[in-house]
Amino acid sequence: MSDGAGSVERVHRTRRVVNRLMLTLTGVAAFVVVVPLLLIFYHLVSAGAGALNLDFFIRLPVPVGDTGGGMLNAFVGTLSLVAYATLLGVPIAVGAGIFLAEGRRAPLATVVRFVADVMNGIPSIVIGIFVWAWVVVAMGRFSLLAGSIALAVMLIPMVTRTTEEMIRLVPRELREGARALGFTRWRTTLGIILPAARSGILTGVLVALARIAGETAPLLFTAFGNPFLEWRLNEPVASLPLLIYQYAISPYDDWHRQAWAASLVLIGFVLMVSLAARFVIRNPYRGS
């Protein structure tokens, strides 16, 4: 009897030790995930914060040799690129996502889903080259439009798949409730299902935005870069990631500082968008 109780006690102790060990290991893993972000932030702030001033945001770059100047062209460029990519990509992606979720058994849906997954894995430089060949060469010039198309091509498969997943998460009962009221299939999808999935889809869009805002490779031969302020669709534009790259490989200390500062701003932007996405997640339809 006492022997039995002792062995039970031993099993308990072993279990506790194993439990604690596993918890510690996963805790370490979690810490390792957080460390790079903290280090990046620390480094960016210490190296770039000095160059962050009002001029940095509202002035254009100055010629090599002069100090000062800013990156207004890159801010406007990146914002325009992201805005046009969203405008171009999101309607297509949401439409495709609805198609995948609704016609899930259609052979075409299987093909589209597979293509979207492949597209998600294509290196972004390849997308840049592809858009160069089809848009830049055809237009005969680098342009904001070409850059936006390249970013939209990156965004579409991401948002397509999240839209599909979010629509599928909507409870089946909701669809049946609408159909039982005599709603047609498309009315049910557009009037009931899509609004119910809205916050999830919006989150997916924000995550995709955060991704494409920092992309450099697809813009190399499309948006190209521009030392002047530009927002017309058929002109080349600057962008933050491109300018960071150019400044970072230059031999000038002042440019290095500005590159750090621009990185800080870019990370800040991504962080803000991610926070916004989190905020949207917190008030989803199913949250109640």
Binding site: P171, E173, L174, E176, A180, L181
Partner: peptide, 29 residues
Amino acid sequence: RRRVGMVFQKSNPFPKSIFENVAYGPRVN
């Protein structure tokens, strides 16, 4: 289906206002 109303085991109000839940069907139809 307009002649046949249906109530389900799991209540399934639309993620809309109380008013809209009732008004949506008559409006669509």
